[in-house]
Design a protein around this nucleic acid. Structure first.
Lengths: 224, 224
DNA sequence: ACAATAGTGTCTGTGAGACAGTATCGA
DNA sequence: TCGATACTGTCTCACAGACACTATTGT
């Protein structure tokens, strides 16, 4: 807090930048908008909103996600705060990045994305390319990608990228995508088994053995 | 970033709050100041500084740590950003918390702490007590304590709390303090062995077998 | 019957946990 | 010699990795 006279210090704008991740067609995708104006016109950018003077950071994130996707009640967490001096050439903006995870089934309910010239960008493809990205958003995306890869190992974060009821082959694919490597079925299932419970449903209509749907078991006492 | 007209949104003050941890007398301690003025007069608070308009968040953290302790070149990392609306009753302040780790040997070099009415507070004791803490700093401290406990398991963060050359009984104690439980010597040493290398020095002058000093081995390629 | 994917049993190696033992100092 | 702490050897058990096997659908 400091006892310095705050008038010595100029105030600055604070924004939240939003990383809305989903998995579509077996690829990790991120919701991005194409900028219409300079600076960085025509480049992909993360959606974001300024933080209101009477709004908490979390509230601003929830509002931003809703404005961008029409979605509410989805999993999100604060990622990191970025405060380079010239990250926005127009003015000083501190950006608090938030990461949200949406199963693609929920994403599709809301088709109004195109009107906001928003689209789902393939994350690995973007990071591997040398395509220009607005502001310091490439760095933010890379940071989030890393965090996802880490957290999938020691949390249940992957479950937020599938629907409430899911098959194990599907969940395994999500793990594989986030980890960037393939896993052995038997081992994966042994590891996941204690976290899930069976449903009565199975897939049907495919030319092979059907797979059972599971849901996440209510947890005993596990911090996120 | 958003295309909203930023003039719609009031700017706000941004500060960094600093959590300078060390281990003293086998206890986890945190550098805190006693507030002289209201609000929260006489209560312990985290030191902090406002972020200058031409200063990055990291730079502000480095500056704050230097002003508070006279120390430079110590390990620090951004912890989390706190943005409740009324966390400071005087005005809206977004606080980006940073955590720094200092071996007590370095801490003692600089004795000017008392002049800033700063002192080392026992973290477990503070968190277990119902002593009032200024602002939302109790919450921040609890968050940092948790992060330390987590990171000690899967990073080498504990090494920042001992000197460059250290004995294994000492390092083990640091692990035990951060984890909050005692460890078996043999197992601890097997786990640590690949990370360290012997020095030629051993302790002397104590009425028992001397212990060897080690140092952290140069790492192959391990992200922090 | 066959292709294709779902799902299981089991061997192995690695590493954490537990504990008993040996080593080396000052007094 | 003794008390105290440093340090090591080894058993056990849980679990991740690897792989071979069985099961069930539509065509």
């Amino acid at each position: 807090m400091a006892e310095y006279d705050s008038s010595m210090y100029e105030k600055m704008s604070v924004a939240v930048d939003l990383l809305v991740f989903t998995i579509e067609e077996d690829r990790l995708k991120l919701l991005m908008i194409e900028r219409s104006e300079d600076p960085f016109a025509k480049m992909p950018a993360l959606p974001g909103v300024f933080v209101g003077i009477n709004e908490t950071l979390d509230d601003a994130a929830v509002r931003g996600i809703y404005e961008e996707t029409g979605l509410t009640d989805l999993y999100f967490e604060q990622l990191y705060s970025f405060g380079e001096v010239n990250r926005d050439p127009r003015m000083r903006i501190i950006s608090v990045a938030y990461m949200a995870l949406v199963p693609i089934e929920k994403m599709n309910y809301h088709a109004g994305l195109r009107t906001l010239n928003a689209s789902l960008v393939d994350v690995e493809e973007l990071l591997a390319s040398n395509r220009k990205v607005a502001f310091d958003h490439r760095k933010i995306i890379a940071y989030a990608r890393q965090r996802l890869a880490n957290k999938v190992e020691y949390t249940q974060i992957a479950f937020h990228l599938v629907d409430e009821e899911f098959t194990l082959p599907r969940l395994q694919k999500v793990y594989e995508i986030l980890l960037g490597k393939s896993l052995y079925k038997a081992n994966f299932r042994k590891k996941i088994a204690p976290m899930i419970e069976e449903t009565e449903y199975v897939t049907a209509g495919e030319a092979h053995r059907p797979s059972r749907f599971y849901r996440l078991k209510e947890q005993s006492g596990c911090s996120e």
